Computed example of a mutant assay.
Amino acid sequence: MGTDVGAGSMRPGLELRRVHVHDSEAPEATVVTPSVFVAVREEQGRLLLVRRCDSGGWELPGGRVDVGESAVGAAVREVAEEAGLRVRITGLVGLFTDPAHIVEAATGREIRQQFVVCFHGWAVWGRPHPDGHETADAAWFDPADVEALRLEPGARRWIHHALSGASDPHLE
């Protein structure tokens, strides 16, 4: 089912994107866009999450891999940009390439199939704070409290696999 990610929007007037996860009404993707997300942990075992400005939903910090950038480099950059933390990438949560996970850009010009590489990371320096542009909040959460949060479509799966303790990465 499609989700208006802007429903209950944090910032009025912000253009909305739509996320479709196994939605028969989803438009056909026109591009596959590699993205990275990071399940950052700290000494007390808490998980870092960011709250999106456009929807108010929580997710792992992350975003697109830029041309000329490695996936690990993009992951470190995205956490610094969205949450103000310096991190060390420590492993791979998994590869999430479900062709039925479609994101319509707010402009409607791009309809992309998600291609997510999700990493494990460790906080090295800094305190969580939002960037005020993409993220309205950044905070540590006890893993037991994450299920009660309003999470972005798709993010629940990535977080579940990140917290599962599995020794092998999730591959799809």
Score class of each variant (00 low, 15 high):
Gly13Ile: 09
Ala100Gly: 15
Leu47Cys: 05
Ala83Gly: 12
Leu47Ser: 08
Arg52Lys: 12
Glu104Ser: 15
Gly84Asn: 10
Leu49Ala: 03
Gly45Pro: 12
Cys53Trp: 07
His22Arg: 02
Phe37Glu: 02
Leu85His: 14
Val21Phe: 00
Gly56Cys: 08
Ala100Met: 15
Gly73Phe: 07
Ile89Met: 11
Val50Leu: 03
Glu69Ile: 00
Glu28Gly: 05
Leu16Ser: 11
Leu16Asn: 06
Gly56Phe: 00
Val38Met: 04
Gly121Ile: 05
Arg109Met: 02
Val19Ile: 08
Leu85Pro: 07
Phe96Val: 08
Glu78Val: 06
Ile102Tyr: 10
Phe37Leu: 08
Ala29Met: 09
Asp54Ile: 07
Leu16Arg: 01
Ala100Leu: 08
Ala100Arg: 13
Gly91His: 07
Thr97Arg: 15
Gln44Asp: 10
Thr90Asp: 11
Leu48Gly: 07
Ala71Gly: 15
Leu49Cys: 10
Glu81Gly: 09
Gly62His: 00
Val21Gln: 00
Ala83Val: 12
Val117Tyr: 00
Thr97Phe: 14
Val21Ser: 00
Asp23Gly: 13
Ala29Gly: 09
Glu28Asp: 06
Thr30Leu: 00
Leu47Met: 07
Glu82Val: 11
Gly68Trp: 04
Gly63Trp: 05
Val103Tyr: 11
Ala100Asn: 09
Arg51Glu: 04
Gly68Leu: 13
Ile89Asp: 06
Gly62Val: 00
Ala75Thr: 12
Arg77Ala: 03
Gly13Met: 00
Asp54Phe: 05
His22Phe: 03
Glu28Arg: 03
Ser35Ala: 06
Thr107Met: 01
Leu48Thr: 06
Val38Thr: 14
Glu25Tyr: 11
Glu15Met: 01
Gln113Ile: 01
Thr90Gly: 08
Gly73Asn: 14
Val67Tyr: 06
Gly13Trp: 03
Val87Gln: 11
Val79Cys: 00
Val116Leu: 10
Gly56His: 12
Val21Leu: 08
Cys53Asn: 05
Gly62Pro: 05
Ala75Lys: 04
Leu92Gln: 11
Gly62Asp: 05
Arg18Val: 06
Pro12Ala: 00
Leu95Trp: 15
Gly57Ala: 15
Ser70Ile: 06
His101Thr: 14
Ile102Asn: 10
Leu14Ser: 13
Val116Phe: 05
Ser35Asp: 01
Arg109Val: 10
Asp23Thr: 02
Phe119Asp: 02
Arg18His: 01
Ser35Met: 02
Ala100Ile: 05
His22Cys: 02
Cys118Val: 02
Pro61Cys: 08
Ala74Asn: 14
His101Asn: 11
Cys118Pro: 01
His120Ile: 10
Pro99Arg: 14
Ala71Lys: 13
Arg77Met: 09
Val76Phe: 11
Asp66Gly: 13
Phe96Pro: 01
Asp54Cys: 10
Val93Phe: 15
Leu85Asp: 12
Val79Leu: 05
Ala26His: 02
Leu48Tyr: 09
Leu85Cys: 10
His20Met: 02
Ile111Val: 12
Val40Cys: 02
Phe115Arg: 08
Ala106Val: 06
Val65Ser: 06
Leu48Cys: 01
Cys118Ala: 12
Glu25Ala: 13
Asp66Ala: 14
Arg112Pro: 04
Ala105Asp: 15
Val116Gly: 04
Gln44Ser: 09
Val65Asp: 05
Val40Pro: 01
Arg109Trp: 03
His22Thr: 10
Arg77Leu: 02
Val117Asp: 11
Ala71Tyr: 15
Glu15His: 03
Arg109His: 12
Gly108Lys: 00
Ser70Asn: 15
Gln113Lys: 07
Glu110Gln: 08
